[in-house]
Amino acid sequence: MRMEDDAADVTAARGGDEDAYRRLVERHSRNVFRLAYRMTRSEHDAEDVVQNAFIKAFRRLEHFESRSNFGTWLHRIAANCAYDVLRTQKRRQREEPLEPDPANPEARALPSLGPSPDRLAESADVRARVARAMSRLSPLERSAFVMRHDQGLSIREIGVALGLDTSATKHSIFRAVRKMRVALEPVSEVAS
């Protein structure tokens, strides 16, 4: 049903029906935000990504192939916007150290002390570990991993989106998973 709704709204939006595009925005905003947040680890940056992704998608509507899934296409645009944000941040980080995001301090400024066994059992701690693991990935690793793991894009599609060959794409994902597994190790050990 949702895909049919999307297809009808895309056709109408291409014809200049702004209301149809509003429906697409309202239908997909939350999922795009989730993707953007997973990649940027910052509410503020994720909001910017959501906004830019919808504006870019609107401008490229005529390039959208009707038989494709609008959600997938939109998420690809959003992932690229988020990747741009991460690259820009990395450039700025080289010039000045990044301040922690006040809206989400745990993502970027986690204490380096190891948590106690009791705290390890809490899901909040697992979340904090995941956040820390994600924030330690390079922009490329994080983008490739989120596109593959969350968005279900194929390695070939991710390579096209990020401008990498298949081997480099695979290795970005492998490195991301390996780093995150290392970060999660104490959780796995306690759980087992």
Binding site: R22, S29, R38, S123, R127, V130, L184
Partner: peptide
Amino acid sequence: AALENDAIPERGDDYGAAVW
């Protein structure tokens, strides 16, 4: 599976309208 346990801030039902 543990990676799914990521703390993503929730967005309310009116979020779509705010984005628009």
